[in-house]
Amino acid sequence: MAPPMSADRFLKALSDEGLRVVEVGNWRTHHRNHKGPWGAVHGVMIHHTVTSGSEQTVRICRDGYAGLPGPLCHGVITKDGTVHLVGYGRANHAGPGDDDTLRAVIAEKRLPPTNEANTDGNRHFYGFECENLGDGQDPWPSAQLEAIEKACAALLRVHGWTAPSVIGHLEWQPGKVDPRGFTMQDMRERVAGRLK
């Protein structure tokens, strides 16, 4: 059982990993905690935004849109590798997912195929939305991929987790495809290398 780190510790972890971090408004108190608990946390989930343009992407992830209020993640990783902190606490990013996947993440074992959505992921995962159209054509700049790697490693270091604690949305919820354009296995290998 891992309680979420404080907002200040979260910011320090990202900064200590060498990331460029921008604090957006009242991110420390912008959350959906009134909809349910946040924690225990067990891992980090990566998404793509299906947007382009950093300013618009950060705004949408902070404010949400009709039918899905923000924040939609804790941090937005834009194409230049900047991490924009938009919320802290429960965020509308993971949604319901597979309890078998959650058990595998907790045990840091190989992920099973997802076949149901019966567990509240917003409670259990830190979430990063990454600016990309998600069409398989929009490029992932090296600065952005490195920032994803560093952000994941930063949180894993604090909790004492290893690379299997990093998953993509597509590995959590049936029917999801994000992130598209790189594989989560490749990202986990990058994170494992950084943790060494």
Rank of each mutant, 00 (worst) to 15 (best):
Met1Ser: 15
Met5Glu: 13
Ser6His: 02
Ser6Trp: 02
Ala7Glu: 07
Asp8Ile: 08
Ala13Ser: 11
Leu14Pro: 01
Ser15Gln: 15
Ser15Gly: 12
Arg20Met: 07
Val22Cys: 08
Val22Arg: 08
Gly25Ile: 02
Asn26Cys: 01
Arg32Ala: 04
Arg32Cys: 00
His34Ala: 13
Pro37Asn: 08
Gly39Glu: 05
Ala40Thr: 15
Val41Cys: 05
Met45Leu: 10
Met45Trp: 02
Thr49Cys: 06
Val50Asn: 10
Glu55Asp: 14
Gln56Val: 10
Thr57Met: 04
Val58Met: 03
Arg59Ser: 11
Arg59Asp: 09
Ile60Leu: 11
Arg62Ser: 02
Asp63Ala: 10
Asp63Ser: 12
Gly64Cys: 06
Tyr65Ile: 02
Ala66Asn: 09
Ala66Ser: 13
Ala66Leu: 09
Pro69Gly: 07
Leu72Val: 06
Cys73Ile: 00
Cys73Val: 01
Val76Met: 11
Asp80Asn: 13
Gly81Glu: 04
Val86Gly: 03
Val86Met: 01
Tyr88Leu: 04
Tyr88Ile: 05
Ala91Trp: 04
His93Lys: 03
His93Thr: 07
His93Gly: 10
Ala94Phe: 02
Gly95Lys: 05
Pro96Ala: 12
Pro96Thr: 10
Gly97Leu: 05
Asp100Val: 10
Thr101Lys: 08
Thr101Glu: 12
Leu102Asp: 10
Ile106Asn: 12
Ala107Leu: 15
Ala107Asp: 15
Ala107Glu: 15
Arg110Ser: 15
Pro112Ala: 12
Glu116Ile: 11
Asp120Lys: 08
Asn122Leu: 00
Phe125Met: 00
Phe128Asp: 02
Asn132Tyr: 06
Asn132Cys: 09
Gln137Thr: 09
Pro139Val: 00
Pro139Asp: 00
Pro139Met: 01
Trp140Val: 02
Leu145Asn: 05
Ala147Arg: 06
Ile148Trp: 00
Ala151Leu: 07
Ala151Ser: 15
Leu156Thr: 08
Arg157Ser: 04
Val158Thr: 14
Gly160Arg: 14
Gly160Leu: 13
Thr162Val: 14
Ala163Leu: 07
Pro164Phe: 11
Pro164Gly: 14
Pro164Lys: 13
Ser165Thr: 11
Ile167Arg: 07
Ile167Gln: 07
Gly168Cys: 03
His169Trp: 12
Gln173Val: 12
Gln173Cys: 13
Gly175Lys: 05
Lys176Cys: 06
Pro179His: 00
Phe182Ile: 02
Phe182Thr: 01
Thr183Arg: 03
Thr183Met: 00
Met184Cys: 08
Arg188Lys: 06
Arg188Leu: 05
Val191Ala: 04
Ala192Asp: 13
Ala192Thr: 06
Gly193Asp: 13
Arg194Ser: 08
Leu195Cys: 09
Lys196His: 13
